[in-house]
Computed example of a mutant assay.
Amino acid sequence: MLPHVLILGGTTEARRLADALHPRVRVTSSLAGRVAAPRLPAGEVRIGGFGGADGMAEWIREHAVGAVIDATHPFAETISFNAARAAATAHVPLLALRRPGWVPGEGDDWREVGSLVEAAEAVRGAGRVFLTTGRMGLAAFAHVDDAHFLVRSVDAPEPPFPPRMEVLLDRGPFTLDGERAVLADHAIDVLVTKDSGGAATAPKLAAAREAGIPVVVVRRPPVPEGVPVATTVDDAVTWAHAQRAQSASG
């Protein structure tokens, strides 16, 4: 029987990881189901939650999972901590795959904050705000009535959301020319983003730098204590095969 690896997340890295492991390894990718038409990875796919850490641990045991790789979005804090608890409960190894965060360069005007709530306070009265933090966090900005928001998301947001809001439905990767056009066409005064890292959405930072637009950056939460971290798909593949070899020898 092929070794079974559970990959958590629908990120670009998660899909690349599934492609790299399948079919030599049995792969099940677990997607949250928050996007209406997700890009499906290679191998098996399950959609929806597990019912917390205990439910995930039970699923791991029932499906003979030998290793778990948390390749969720860097801000998917709840699922990451559930994965850590579930893996410990089910006695299976866990790896976190996290793309490196962004680093400000010369000419950047970044204001780092610790949460979306802090970001909302930072943009009060800021004029026209380009909000690229995803539709799930819009409630944090719902009380801000003295700024106009351009919200970009894959699917249409649901309330609560800011009273003065325009929605731009789009999916990355984005280009520098495209981001320049968005900032100019909508007369953006400030950009708000999470420190997601990666190249797919980074052009907005370069466009903001060129335009002299300040950027409010939400710092990413830490990986659960004790969980090893890989920063590339290749390193995660190496780790998965090492678990396979260790299991076979044991």
Rank of each mutant, 00 (worst) to 15 (best):
H4N: 14
I7Y: 02
E13W: 13
A14R: 06
A14C: 09
A18Q: 10
A20F: 02
L21Y: 08
H22P: 05
R24Q: 03
V25E: 12
S29H: 04
A32L: 15
G33E: 11
A36T: 15
R39S: 12
E44F: 05
V45W: 02
G49N: 10
G49K: 14
D54H: 12
G55H: 08
A57M: 12
R61S: 08
T72M: 12
P74N: 13
E77N: 04
T78I: 13
I79H: 02
A83R: 14
A86R: 05
A90G: 10
P93W: 00
L95H: 03
L95F: 01
A96K: 07
A96L: 13
L97Q: 03
L97D: 04
G101P: 10
P104I: 05
G105I: 11
D108F: 01
R111D: 06
E112N: 00
S115G: 07
V123M: 06
G125E: 07
A126L: 08
V129N: 11
V129S: 11
T133M: 12
A139R: 06
A139T: 11
H143V: 05
D145A: 15
F149C: 09
L150W: 04
D155P: 07
P160T: 07
P162L: 05
M165N: 03
L168D: 14
L169I: 11
R171F: 10
L176G: 00
E179D: 14
L183V: 07
L183C: 06
H186G: 07
D195N: 15
A199Q: 13
T201M: 09
T201I: 15
K204V: 15
L205W: 09
L205S: 01
A206E: 15
A211C: 13
A211Y: 09
G212N: 11
V215D: 01
V217G: 00
D235I: 05
A236W: 06
V237Q: 10
A240V: 00
H241G: 03
Q246S: 14
